[in-house]
Amino acid sequence: MKTNSLLRWSISLALFGGALVPALASAQTASTTTVAHPKLEARMAARALATSTAATKAIANAQAKADQEITRRIASLNDLNTRVQAMQKVTDAFKQSLSTNVQAQIAGLTALKAKIDADTDVATLKTDIKAIADSYRVYLLVLPQSRIAAAADRVVTIAGMMTTLGAKLQTRIAAAQGAGTDVTALTAALNDVTSKLTDAVAQAQKAVSTTAPLTPDNGDKTKAAANTASLKAAKGDIQTATKDLQAARKDVQTILAGLKKLPKATGSATSTAPTSAPASL
């Protein structure tokens, strides 16, 4: 009897314990899982926020760089357009053609800047920033091409002014010669002025004829190299023209100094207008 009771108690106890242990174990597992999830979720949320902030910052940085480049180019193109409008020796049609080209560049860049500033996703922004690089190929040609044309225009303008001055100097030299003064040196200097001015104008025209037909390379490296070579050659022509003008100016100074040493003539000096037509590009 006691054994049966004992046995009965043992079995009951085993059954109870068998049910209790898993329940206790399950309860412990449940409590540990509930404690681990909030930390993980917080960590994941923080990581997502950091990634989003970094992406936003990267987009803003890219937009700022793009704006900087576009603003820089627009400023130099506006300056160029002002210079083009001040050109004196080219035809109005040529001036208008240059100006239209420059204005088109400015309009395109302005629209691109607005688009970039409104971009909110990286893919679109990348595409638009690539467009800056593509348009740079045109800018890289239009800017020096127009600057060379403006410089050539200035050379021809100065040559025209010095031709007018030369005619007046001729009048003064002739008057001095008529008064019996030896004007050999002055005449030689004036002849050199004429020679230098002729070459200066020729160099300026050569610079323009070399660069005017050039077209954008659109990424073609061979063409890009050829364009650069032509532009540099034209720059060399402008430098030669500048040296000619400087030499002519020195001759003018020699003549003016020589005239100052002559005895003063009575009455006002007048000259006739130069008979040769002013040079143009």
Binding site: A62, R83, K126, P144, R147, A151, R154, V252
Partner: peptide
Amino acid sequence: AIDAQAQGLSSDASNIDASLNDKPVTQAY
């Protein structure tokens, strides 16, 4: 007057150099 124009030509020549040596701002993307 000629000397004033010569100053302008010097400025034009500098602008040619600047345009031939132009360097773009490095883009982020």
